[in-house]
Nucleic acid binder design. Structure first.
Lengths: 231, 231
DNA sequence: AGAAATTTGTTCGTATGTATA
DNA sequence: TTATACATACGAACAAATTTC
């Protein structure tokens, strides 16, 4: 806790952030709810409208709220964007390589597999099986891309750990935004090469049959295959 | 890419963010450098000072810059805070439990171990060994806490994956900020119980001797021990 | 050491485009 | 269509902290 009441005075824009966060925590504001107008908030908190706007901009940037011109500010609670933003900032600012990114993604999937064999719901097992079928029988490159994506995402979600899920989703977005050609090349190779298909089969079998060994082996081969596509 | 040139016009505050990010990427701005004054930026970008401030506030909130009253805005590039903020938001807003947090932390450490046995530098191996010694011979609870922390952090850093490092650091901060009593209870038990000491020994042996099996076994027992302390 | 200039922090007033009834 | 509420954006002013001379 950095700012106790003891301390002199909080910055005006921080007041807005704390207030909104508090209202959400106390259950007075739920996703979809509309916030009071900027002028009203300013009066309530005893600060200027500009300060209210600074605070709301930050909340918007953090994914807590979203503003609609002429209408108002609404609670959204979608943290995928700020996570993606932060990770992509690290990626671009620190000049990190694609390999580290893929490596971390492999890490998260491997851990998701550990958890998925224990916690995957029946519905998730059915889902990942359907995505596999759709992936194998896909005709267009776009379809393959979509179902490959959905398959991996289902694995992650089967871990039932929200931190892992959010982090992975952000990582995926970063890859899509900054390395557009990357995934395309891999998917393209799927048509002719059956190796990637097999890895997906093993991966799914691991989840469906709660067979950690098979699942991990599938993942290992999967990323081994991906690593070929350096540049 | 969301905002192509096709689209009408970017919001003024977004202009500031893009500009600063571009300057950093092009090498014109490095950590520690001072940004132009708010008025000057406003004139350069053809927007008002208020809009400049909104953009700068967001950059500050993202960890790209930091402002000093009366002095100016400086490049900082410290992403630990925004990552911690984002993860703690997920924690508080989604009402997640402590178990998921600990579980994810275990996941990251396990993956760090996988990488550390391959990539740990000689210096890091020496470091983690020293932290172990200091931990085992520590007298006060505070010392035990510090060295336990440093030991685990060294393991993470030995993975040499910045995404993993940043994510783990954020997670640790969340735990410290929101679950203050948690770690204390565990550390307290170390004095009388030698089990935790042994897990740390195995963990360090794994890293130093590049012995994945031993390292993972140490980690497994370590978190198995921690899981006992559910309230 | 002290005064002046510079810079961020904060507020108020005003004009404009947008959504909704 | 009109009227109202609202977010968006700008400009000017003063306060507070820092730097500079």
């Amino acid at each position: 806790m950095k700012n106790s009441q003891e301390n002199v005075k909080e910055k005006p824009y921080q007041l807005v952030i704390d207030h909104v966060r508090g209202e959400i925590l106390h259950g007075n504001l739920k996703p979809g709810d509309r916030l009071p107008g900027e002028r009203e908030l300013a009066e309530q908190l005893g600060i200027s409208r500009n300060s209210v706007r600074e605070g709301l901009r930050i909340l918007e940037n953090m994914g807590v709220t979203s503003s609609q011109h002429g209408a108002g500010h609404y609670i959204s609670l979608n943290f995928d964007e700020p996570m993606t933003e932060t990770l992509s900032l690290i990626y671009t600012m620190k000049g990190m390589g694609r390999d580290d990114l893929t490596q971390f993604r492999y890490c998260l999937e491997r851990e998701a597999m550990h958890l998925a064999v224990d916690y995957a719901s029946e519905q998730q097992k059915i889902m990942i099986g359907k995505h596999l079928e759709a992936l194998l029988s896909a005709e267009t490159e776009k379809d393959r891309y979509e179902h490959d994506m959905a398959l991996h995402m289902t694995l992650i979600e089967a871990s039932r750990n929200d931190y892992l899920i959010t982090t992975y989703r952000a990582l995926t977005n970063v890859i899509e935004d900054y390395i557009p050609v990357f995934r395309g090349k891999i998917i393209e190779g799927m048509k002719s090469n059956h190796k990637l298909e097999d890895t997906h089969r093993m991966l799914v079998m691991g989840v469906v049959n709660s067979d950690l060994r098979t699942g991990l082996e599938g993942l290992s081969r999967h990323f081994e295959y991906i690593r070929q596509f350096k540049d």
